[in-house]
Write a protein that binds this DNA or RNA. Structure first.
Length: 570
DNA sequence: GCCGTTTTCGGCCCGACTGTTTTCAGTCG
């Protein structure tokens, strides 16, 4: 996937145009296209190949040509020319909090600053505070910002962000006079990774909330404190914004701060066309507020069904909501079991009994044990003989009647270099759920990888393709693979796609899930738990499924056992 | 540069906060 590279190039063009300062709408257009591509979820090269770049909102003929050029040659003429005219490392300067295009232009024009080192030098020498419109405080802020960039402000996994968020929400909830605390932004939309927290508060006394918020124990820096809005940084640089919104505007605030930006821009345009105005305080006709306290009411007045936060990405949810065609998204309670878990028979941490106790405690109706197979030696993968023993052990455990969930016999079988499997068919034939996964040769070319996976899916004993894209969020990109072809082969061989719920994977991504759904493929949401507490990853899987527009009907582990077994008996 | 149930030309989201300003520009979300 080269989406990120393309987005980066467009952003650099936008910034350079802004620094040049000739036209302020052109850079805005490039930024809009950049945002659309960032949240695409589908491989932009595939879209380019289909000649459908201009279907991306914000991408017209001119930008489409530049994207094509970038994909083919790695270059964009305009960008090259801009870099010559404005030889400034805009991307690294822009990363400094508090520094935007205008500041970049100023320090470049007046001080010849072209990169982070020169910016730091200028700040250290006090030359920035001498500039018009700049002062000592701004200079100090820039110095601190440079340190933050150097430390590396990165996004957090959704799971980590939620772990940071929870105690802060509790802390705020206990401030006297606080009526409601909701975290909005990308966390509420359940994005895979989160850059900062946006907390919304309904309280009697805003000032009291602000005072308490900025002295939260883990605060290292207060970057803003006003009467309704404050920003802090936590240890490690994670930013948390807090807003206090009046009760009768709380729903509008929720809507506004949940975003996404593009979803909100569309919504405000719909309001405008209806002679209304939408902002974080409410929906207004002239001076009169027609909605504000209730988020759903805003959608309703604008003629839309309520759009769940996970869908608010301007990816067709507005149109669907207008036509009453939003899918009824899967809920956590729909899940009846987990089809991919590990025990200490391979690289899991808990015994099969411990895992079963945990599954029982979670009220599962069925539970599949699927340890690794022999090629994954590092994970103590099983050969046929050990797997055979496992199968017999599970028969005994089921017979014991000790656990409520029916224990399903499974394995996570390795796909070898040539696409064959590392366990003999006669053993696979005895398993209830055969999941196949790639764990090796992840740098294979797209062609080879796609052939490998498709070949594996043609084995008649295979039920599920595990973590189909192989990515590790913030760590490892997806491997090169033509998922569209994989989906087709899966469909004709009645193979299910896994949505791996591990928060570091969330594999498939939302765009892939939608594509799979469109093709009529069924999905299994699995935790891939290696420890008992990882069974709780299921929530992240459900969030991701919702982001991928999946309904209960699209997900096989919402089925009662009998129906599930019918799906699995190919 | 993009886009259109007012428009193929003429618009382009907007409010809070900060800092450096006596009334506003820049950044951020």
């Amino acid at each position: 996937m080269r989406n990120r590279e393309v987005a980066r190039a467009l952003k650099e063009i936008a910034l350079l145009l802004e620094v040049e300062g000739k036209d302020k709408f052109k850079p805005r257009a490039y930024r809009r296209a950049m945002r659309a591509i960032t949240s695409l979820g589908e491989d932009i090269e595939a879209i380019a190949k289909r000649d459908e770049l201009t279907e991306i909102p914000g991408v017209g003929k001119a930008i489409a040509e530049k994207i094509s050029s970038f994909l083919e040659t790695g270059k964009i003429d305009l960008l090259e020319r801009l870099r010559e005219r404005v030889p400034v490392k805009v991307m690294e300067l822009e990363a400094v909090p508090g520094v935007g295009p205008k500041t970049i232009k100023l320090v470049y024009d007046e001080l010849g600053v072209t990169d982070l080192d020169l910016l730091e030098k200028a700040a250290e020498e006090g030359r920035i505070s001498d500039l018009k419109g700049m002062g000592k405080k701004t200079e100090d802020q820039i110095k601190e910002g440079i340190q933050l960039v150097r430390v590396g402000l990165e996004r957090k996994l959704l799971s980590e962000a939620m772990a940071v968020c929870e105690p802060i929400e509790l802390y705020i909830a206990e401030i006297p006079g606080v009526r409601k605390v909701v975290t909005t932004g990308s966390l509420r939309r359940r994005r895979e990774t989160v850059g900062d927290l946006d907390i919304l508060v309904d309280a009697e006394d805003a000032a009291k909330v602000m005072d308490a918020f900025v002295v939260y124990e883990k605060v290292t820096d207060v970057s803003a404190k006003g009467s309704t809005k404050s920003s802090i940084r936590l240890e490690g640089g994670f930013q948390v914004d807090l807003r206090v919104i009046p009760s009768d505007s709380f729903g509008a605030g929720l809507q506004y701060f949940t975003g996404s930006v593009d979803h909100n821009v569309r919504l405000r345009a719909i309001a405008q066309n209806a002679g209304l105005k939408l902002n974080e305080y409410g929906l207004f006709r002239g001076e009169e507020k027609v909605a504000g306290s209730d988020e759903a009411e805003i959608y309703s007045i604008l003629g839309l069904d309520y759009v769940p936060p996970e869908l608010r990405e301007n990816k067709g949810e507005i149109e669907a909501a207008q036509q009453g065609e939003l899918p009824e998204l899967i809920e956590h309670d729909d899940i009846r079991g987990d089809l991919h878990t590990h025990t200490d028979a391979s690289d899991g941490s808990n015994t099969i009994e411990e895992m079963l106790d945990a599954a029982d405690a979670r009220g599962f109706e069925y539970f599949c044990i699927s340890d690794h197979t022999q090629s994954l030696t590092i994970a103590n993968g099983m050969d046929e003989a050990r797997l055979q023993k496992c199968i017999e052990e599970i028969d005994d455990l089921n017979a014991s009647g000790r656990w409520k969930p029916t224990i399903l016999k499974g394995a996570e079988v390795d796909i070898l270099a040539d696409g064959s499997l590392d366990i003999e068919d006669e053993v696979l034939a005895q398993l209830d759920v055969v999941t196949v996964s790639i764990h090796s040769r992840m740098k294979d070319s797209k062609e080879v990888m796609t052939d490998r996976v498709c070949h594996a899916l043609e084995n008649k004993y295979v039920h599920v393709l595990g973590h189909p894209s192989g990515r590790l969020l913030l760590k490892r990109p997806e491997f090169e693979i033509d998922l569209e072809r994989v989906f087709e082969v899966a469909k004709s061989n009645r193979v299910l796609m896994e949505l791996n719920a591990a928060p570091s994977r969330l594999d498939l991504n939302a765009g892939n899930l939608r594509a799979a759904r469109r093709m009529g493929l069924k999905v299994a949401i699995n935790t891939d738990a290696h420890k008992i507490h990882e069974l709780d990853f299921m929530s992240y899987g459900v969030y991701q499924a919702r982001r991928g527009w999946l309904t209960k009907e699209d997900v096989v582990n919402t089925l009662p056992l009998k129906k599930l077994m019918r799906v699995l008996s190919k």
